[in-house]
């Protein structure tokens, strides 16, 4: 059985090292915070906050306290607020240990496309280009194939890029792949997924 969204998030949480500052993207990456367990992880929200807490209880929502997905959230005893230039200073400056992001396409050389479909989706890159350029480790979490059953793990991205050679590790519903010299290396297969199934579902070179 391939992993579901929660299992992918749970697997991604294993990537986070105790005592680090981490940025989680929107979608499946947001679920990762449910699986950090006993690890001491401080979540960064790039609109200007370290120490992001859970959603507020109903009635406690504060319009001045949102995350980068514009959702109402809460603060923690460790929370610090700062302006956007400072926020991206710590991102660009390599102070954030890891970013877990969704993707539309990833290529075998670590190229990432997750912000634009020409003519269709014109929303903008937000902070994604700064994150992939600046954080120490970039982990992509996404479905292995699109709705048409085509591989999202490609030899070369077809969509406009978010960054070149930036992805370190890819976690999909089929397993875990690392970007290495010459292509991708299988690190782990989801329960019941065979290496053959992984290879069949992947357009990129698997070494």
């Amino acid at each position: 059985m391939p992993w579901d969204r929660n299992q992918m998030a749970e697997r991604a949480a294993q990537e986070l090292e105790d005592g680090t500052y981490v940025n989680l993207g929107i979608g499946i990456p947001t679920l990762v915070s449910n699986y950090v367990g006993d690890k001491d992880i401080t979540l960064q929200s790039e609109n200007g906050m370290l120490g992001m807490g859970p959603f507020p209880f109903e009635g406690d929502e504060d319009p001045d306290l949102i995350n980068a997905g514009k959702q109402t959230i809460t603060e923690l005893p460790r929370t610090a607020y700062f302006d956007s230039a400072t926020s991206f200073g710590m991102i660009r400056g390599g102070k954030i240990a890891a970013a877990i992001l969704g993707a539309m396409e990833v290529a075998e050389n670590g190229d990432l496309a997750n912000w634009m479909i020409p003519g269709k989706l014109v929303k903008g890159m937000g902070g994604a280009m700064d994150l992939v350029a600046g954080v120490q480790k970039v982990i992509v979490v996404m479905d292995h194939q699109n709705k048409a059953g085509e591989s999202k793990v490609l030899k070369e991205c077809t969509l406009p890029l978010t960054g070149t050679g930036v992805v370190d590790r890819i976690i999909t519903n089929l397993g875990v792949l690392d970007v290495v010299e010459g292509g991708l290396k299988i690190v782990e297969l989801a329960d019941g997924v065979t290496e053959e199934q992984m290879r069949d579902a992947t357009e990129a070179t698997i070494v």
């Binding site: 302006d83 956007s84 230039a85 937000g126 902070g127 280009m129 700064d130 600046g134």
Partner: peptide, 8 residues
């Protein structure tokens, strides 16, 4: 503009 580039 990338968000951090805009802020900077």
């Amino acid at each position: 503009n990338p968000q951090g580039t805009l802020a900077e």
